[in-house]
Amino acid sequence: MFLIYLIDRFFQFYYYLVIARVVLSWVQPPTHHQTMRKIIAFIYQATEPVLGPIQEMMPSLGGIDFSPIIVLMALQIVRNGAIQLLLYLF
């Protein structure tokens, strides 16, 4: 059951990273602090492998990027599937 807990926490963490990237695209965060620059760089580096390919496949509809919504839904589906599989196996 600890493995299920870890998987759940990982997906929750990644979910929040995607949300943070969306918020960062709306506001101009203060980048004059070295720590803030590192946090922003981490968020972009962690989410780009998932968001990037989806952004390339989807056209921008009126300047609105819907790729985060698709990623968040896909994360929930994969998370639920992984947990159900582990519950079935154990």
Rank of each mutant, 00 (worst) to 15 (best):
I39W: 02
I39A: 10
I40T: 03
I40L: 03
I40D: 00
A41H: 11
A41W: 06
F42M: 08
I43E: 00
Y44N: 04
Q45D: 04
Q45V: 10
A46C: 12
A46E: 01
T47I: 12
T47S: 07
T47R: 08
T47F: 05
T47P: 07
E48H: 05
P49F: 06
P49K: 11
L51V: 09
G52Y: 04
P53L: 05
I54E: 02
Q55G: 03
Q55P: 10
E56V: 12
E56T: 13
E56S: 11
M57H: 10
M57C: 11
M57T: 14
M58K: 09
M58V: 15
P59W: 12
P59H: 11
S60T: 13
L61F: 14
L61R: 13
L61Q: 12
L61T: 12
G62E: 12
G62M: 14
G63W: 04
I64A: 07
I64K: 10
I64H: 05
D65E: 00
D65I: 03
D65K: 05
D65L: 01
F66W: 14
F66V: 13
F66T: 13
F66Y: 14
S67E: 06
P68G: 09
I69A: 14
I70V: 15
I70S: 02
V71K: 03
L72G: 02
L72T: 09
M73E: 09
L75K: 09
L75N: 11
L75R: 08
Q76A: 15
Q76W: 15
I77F: 09
V78E: 01
V78W: 05
